[in-house]
Nucleic acid binder design. Sequence first.
DNA 1: ATAAATTTAATTGCAGGCAATTAAACTTTA
DNA 2: TAAAGTTTAATTGCCTGCAATTAAATTTAT
Lengths: 161, 161
Amino acid sequence: MRLNPVLSPTAMSKPADMPSANPLQQLDKQLCFPLYAASRMLTKAYQPHLQELGLTYPQYLVFLLLWQYQELTVKQLGEQLLLDSGTLTPLLKRMEQKLWVSRRRDPRDERSVIVGLLPAGRDLQQRAGHVPEKLLEKLALTPAAFEALRQQLQNLLTQLA
Amino acid sequence: MRLNPVLSPTAMSKPADMPSANPLQQLDKQLCFPLYAASRMLTKAYQPHLQELGLTYPQYLVFLLLWQYQELTVKQLGEQLLLDSGTLTPLLKRMEQKLWVSRRRDPRDERSVIVGLLPAGRDLQQRAGHVPEKLLEKLALTPAAFEALRQQLQNLLTQLA
DNA sequence: ATAAATTTAATTGCAGGCAATTAAACTTTA
DNA sequence: TAAAGTTTAATTGCCTGCAATTAAATTTAT
């Protein structure tokens, strides 16, 4: 049995022995797998750039929103990022420990927690300024291909959520 | 400040207050985020179907390969799934505990661990037969759109790995 | 043949994700 | 207004992912 790496699909040969009975049950016929793998590999591509700043990929996503809006509730962050408090609460606590963000109850609605930028978190925006360009480079997509893919993924996301 | 959910991009309005200085530092201009979110949402869409069978999404991916090839080394699984032993070893141990797979050293190369299907794991193939169709339904993509997206993601994956 | 280098899994430690539950604050309803 | 229902975060417990290290087996180079 010869298995070729998933990264050279053109060189991928059929398995010599009994194939899967259900042709839809093949990894290389799935949409889910390239989506899953590409997402992880893209996150990994961010890693070296983000590591310099001491932050992780989901923390970076939180910052993208905070840099834009200055402050957001946990609920708003969750709506934008499609993450729940089980993920966000501990993540935000780690960001709070680093003095990047503040967390306080909304006085007008004590159920809500408002997450705001602290100076150190604000300063990170400049230092992270080169990150998008670096990644765009790595992707090596034309603007049109980039936008087309972004749009398809956005549609898929809308369909799934 | 009004924030619209990420799922209604058409209704997304510009923030009323000071926008991000760097236009590339906006969540809705990124490719990374829809990829990241779509991947998680698609995994979540598998969840109810896989839960009936007692398996998780990455375990399902391992099964897709094992159903096709009967047995693979940890290294081969890692090459196909782009996962390392730090992820695979504990995952495979859990699958072993459920008597779905066997793990044994290759007698011809004691460094390698061969993962093989046990009867209970083999039986799961039939029971999981409907999963791809269910998901295809949920995606609501034409075959052409499905294939186009799959191809683009595969290309992205190749570029990133 | 043996020392050095490489390959393969396992281990450790940390940070997500997420389902399910809990608790508190607020809103709606009777 | 009191009770019931809803909303919002936090918590718990489990399963990934992944970087870094370790240990054993194998291969390569000397």
